[in-house]
Write a protein that binds this DNA or RNA. Structure first.
Lengths: 342, 342
DNA sequence: TCAGGCGATAATAGCGCTACGATTTATTTG
DNA sequence: CAAATAAATCGTAGCGCTATTATCGCCTGA
């Protein structure tokens, strides 16, 4: 009348108990060794590491996370990793986090707050150690979801608005201002901003607005020509053609980023427009080609790398319990790279 | 004489039981609803969704994963997401996986097998639904770790060697061959391959080797000039200068990627070297600037996007139990974009 | 000699959820 | 109308690990 085993379950091949058994200690000791090796005697440590090696034991982070009510994951949501800016930040952050054995869970919002909201929900399901979002603008539901979480919430790549918790980045309107002031300093009076995808990209819009204001404040004329698609050199060339048709008097151009600026330079070369003599050009991004093109592109270099590192540092501090409450604002600034295009 | 509660534990604010209670059903039913909504009656479904909304319930994927012995995570390891090729694949994959509610865990190997091994170990700790690696070359320990896992192991961006499980990509030597044959077809006989970081980037090396062999097979001379750093336009310009010094007779150049090619075009422009008359140039990658530069760059376009989508499809099939064993090879091919630089 | 203290190890009770079988309820059929 | 079948729901036993408390030796010093 004996019953068969009621529940059969899938399982992990090698568990912590297996290691404990082989090392002749209790599972608790193995767990302790994994988390605080210094608290375990040398003898036990050795036996345990040997057993781990022999069995090729891989700890189960889900079990660990469940028991500890927190995980070794950090969720980062960016518009897209195809964008070199965010790729840089993601990359530097992952490098920094790896040292703390934290893993990056990546999500792409595609500049869509609805999408972001869904991704935040999914991210929270992992009980991450921190969550990183791009920008300061989020749906109401996203804010609600994040309002009461006990982990750091870090908003990157934008400063200058109400923030949820920490914010790391710079002021995009100041980028626009710097570009305008630079062109004015170079003696230009008929300025133009060439922008791509500005209906979606808030930060490009902020740069544009800063540019227009500063230009006008300095007594220069300032117009905008834009294109709805993602920035590319091709669109840059098209925008230049349109710009010169609509505003032939233009003598200084700022671009929403270096892809656009590169396209402008290509078009100028084809049409024998002298840069910077006839037209000064300034970009944004300092991408890999910006110093190498003809002429080398004056541009504003953001701090994508630093943003990622600072975010990782914040997370590390929080993890190590340095109570220094995370509600902070870190301005990573930007620098003007003056080259020959202006 | 009563004891205080022995164990106090941290916890999640809202659990499935809370939802069940509010909806007047058992936790099992809530779980079922979340996994297979169609198996739950309309009445119960409604009550449950309402409760979820009201409580703002977020399921705990770690608990779920632990119980189900599998997680909703897919681990992807690429050399770096700063590289536009991999960014493209990661991005398209993430988009495709999102529909299945799978999350991407990202790791950067930096072209280092040791690093990759560590990352694989960390990745396995999550009991992912699949694991995606770049290339076919891995450390012995990595192979051992992956030998017996029950999940799909997908190697991307390289074909033509022994694979662990599935492989999705193309043959890089064929890329080199196509480039050489193209230049020969254009009447070039003194060919050169310009490469960056080839000591680390196996796939660039394969393209180079294919190029040299095909060029020589076609009776053309073929040399190599390389630089140890990451590809960039600046390095492309430097390499061109060195190339013309060492091999002034060169009349056709293939580059390990479009960044290098762009630098070559920039340098040619500065030095008034006519492209393609004096020098034909072909790149690899078809990056965002390649069609827009002067002259538009002939290049070979890989299928980074497709690779990501195919990988996601494979994972989906496996998840839906379509036994179609995953050990497969999918050749995503590449296409030659003939433009004016050759 | 033995209480007191300390470092190292062990035992225990869940973390929140899913899978499985068992049970209940609704629906059909002989 | 009872029996058989199908549909919906529930109860239970862990998944593998961590945090907390309890225990075990061993050394010190009065």
């Amino acid at each position: 009348m004996r019953k068969p085993p009621r529940h059969r379950r899938k399982m992990q091949s090698v568990t912590m108990s297996d290691v404990a058994e082989l090392a002749n200690v209790s599972p608790s000791t193995v767990s302790l060794f994994l988390r605080k090796p210094e608290a375990v005697s040398a003898t036990a440590s050795q036996a345990i590491s040997r057993a781990i090696d022999k069995l090729n034991y891989v700890p189960n982070l889900m079990a660990g996370g469940l028991a500890a009510a927190s995980s070794r994951a950090v969720s980062i949501l960016v518009p897209s990793v195809r964008n070199a800016f965010f790729a840089e930040t993601v990359s530097s952050m992952q490098t920094a986090l790896k040292k703390q054995r934290l893993q990056l869970i990546l999500g792409h919002t595609e500049y869509d707050e609805q999408e972001e909201e869904e991704l935040v929900r999914m991210a929270l399901s992992w009980a991450p150690a921190a969550i990183v979002l791009t920008g300061l603008s989020h749906s109401a539901a996203t804010r609600r979801l994040l309002a009461n979480v006990a982990i750091p919430v870090i908003e990157i790549w934008e400063l200058g608005g109400p923030q949820i918790d920490a914010a790391i980045g710079f002021h995009h309107d100041q980028v626009g201002i710097a570009a305008a002031e630079h062109l004015v300093r170079q003696g230009r009076r008929n300025l133009l901003f060439l922008g791509a995808r500005m209906h979606q990209d808030r930060r490009a819009r902020q740069r544009c607005n800063g540019f227009l204001q500063a230009a006008r404040a300095a007594g220069a004329a300032a117009k905008v020509v834009e294109h709805p698609d993602t920035a590319s050199a091709e669109i840059g060339s098209m925008l230049l053609a349109e710009a010169l048709r609509l505003h032939p008097e233009t003598d200084g151009i700022a671009c929403s980023n270096d892809h656009i600026a590169l396209g402008v330079l290509f078009a100028c070369e084809r049409q024998k427009i002298a840069v910077p003599d006839r037209l000064a050009v300034i970009g944004f991004g300092d991408l890999s080609f910006s110093a190498a093109c003809n002429p080398p592109l004056t541009t504003i270099r953001p701090s994508g790398d630093l943003i990622g590192r600072e975010a990782a540092r914040l997370i590390e501090e929080h993890l190590h319990g340095e109570k220094a409450d995370t509600h902070r604002t870190i301005d990573t600034r930007f620098t003007l790279q003056h080259r020959r295009s202006s």
